[in-house]
Simulated assay, not measured.
Amino acid sequence: MTLSWFKGGSRKREQVVAVDLGGRCTKAVWIQNRPEGPVLLRYAIAEAPVFDKEPSAELLADHLRSVVQSLESRSPLVSVAIGVHDAIVRYAELPQMPVPDMRQILKTSSKLYLQQDLPGYVFDCWPVNGRSGGPAPEKPKGPAVPKQKVLVAGAKKTWVDTLHTAIKQAGCTAGSVLPGLVAPINALEKAEPDLFQREVLALVDLGFRHSSVCILQEGELVLTRVLALGGDQITQGLADTMGISYAEAEGIKLGMPAEVREQLFALIAPLGRELKASLDFYEHQSDRPVTHILVSGAGAAAEWVLQALQTELVSECRAWDPTAGLQRSLPPQQLAEWEQVAPQLSVAVGTALATL
């Protein structure tokens, strides 16, 4: 099911650097495709640049160049995941036609098929039956054109073009631009294939300003939702509650969460309730229970976060390793830090797998 959009080229590559442009931290991985399977060679987590508006290609190029250098990568191919607030991902019923024609019809008639006018957007499509290439379907003999269910991703063309330009200015080759919302799906399919194919899963990704939930039913994406709640709001809420600075609140949240457990649980409770509403909606519509809740993002490494979400969802929540399906050839220092770092890399890993 590996999903990949906005490709700079269709040829599969031996290795790739994948970059997750987060709100607070940029996460990146360097993965090589070997005969025995994909191998994780390096990862990097760097402070994200602060921009008051959409950054220029030059500023992004400087940042990407620094990230690639920190990986000590010899790969010139770079793929990028964009944030949940920079892309739309939703299903649409489109006429059966080749994917390039689908892109064009969405460009001219987005309101008709997506119930939203999206001028200046570029689109890509993934037919639910997995037909993203190959020969075009045969034309029906009758006047009516049959339709099919298609997963659509869209982003502003100016932003996608800026990313491609920045990658090239950084001295690299542009690979895919992937919506960060769906990237963890690719990683999970590789990391836990049996669970992916057989169960109903909720993938929860905890971000800095936004969090998301994707529900998968036996490998098919059936529901997505983006929530304007993340680590930033929790830290700011703790700072306001305790009358301290943002930096002090962040230090307490990370270093002494047990001292402020009650306050932290209260601050994350709204996120838990919103996630519970999403799961309840799916279960009511499908008459099937969500059997596993898997959590990624920086917060997934904190035990109190998982406990707080379990309290609200009344169901077990666990962190997962997006590289479980990969071999690792990491430097000793990175191996030592791996357990705390791994949950943050689901978007970057999923983006890399979409390119290889």
Rank of each mutant, 00 (worst) to 15 (best):
S245E: 12
G255Q: 15
D194W: 03
A308E: 06
K139G: 15
L313T: 09
A183F: 00
L267V: 13
L309E: 05
R209T: 09
G255W: 15
E220R: 11
R24P: 01
A249Q: 00
T224G: 04
A166T: 07
Q169F: 11
P331S: 13
Y43I: 09
A87M: 13
R318D: 00
A277C: 04
L206R: 03
G142T: 08
A342N: 06
G325S: 07
L181H: 05
A247C: 02
R13G: 11
K139Y: 09
E47C: 05
A258N: 13
G231R: 00
P127R: 00
V160W: 02
V68R: 05
D205N: 14
E283Q: 15
D86F: 14
L40E: 02
Q15N: 14
K111P: 00
V152P: 01
R42K: 12
V222M: 09
D117T: 12
L206A: 10
Q333C: 04
K141C: 07
L40D: 02
A342G: 03
V222D: 03
V305H: 03
R225N: 09
P137H: 10
L114S: 05
M97L: 09
F6A: 02
P289I: 08
R273M: 11
K149P: 08
T323R: 03
S4P: 07
Q115S: 14
T2S: 13
A308W: 05
L60S: 03
A277I: 04
T235H: 00
E303I: 11
Q104A: 15
P49V: 10
L112H: 08
D287C: 08
E316G: 04
Q263R: 03
S4N: 14
Q327R: 15
D86V: 06
Q233H: 14
L345W: 01
Y282H: 08
P76F: 06
V50Q: 13
D321F: 05
A61C: 07
L294I: 05
I234R: 00
L275D: 02
C25W: 14
L335I: 09
L216C: 07
S296P: 02
A81P: 03
P135V: 13
V213E: 01
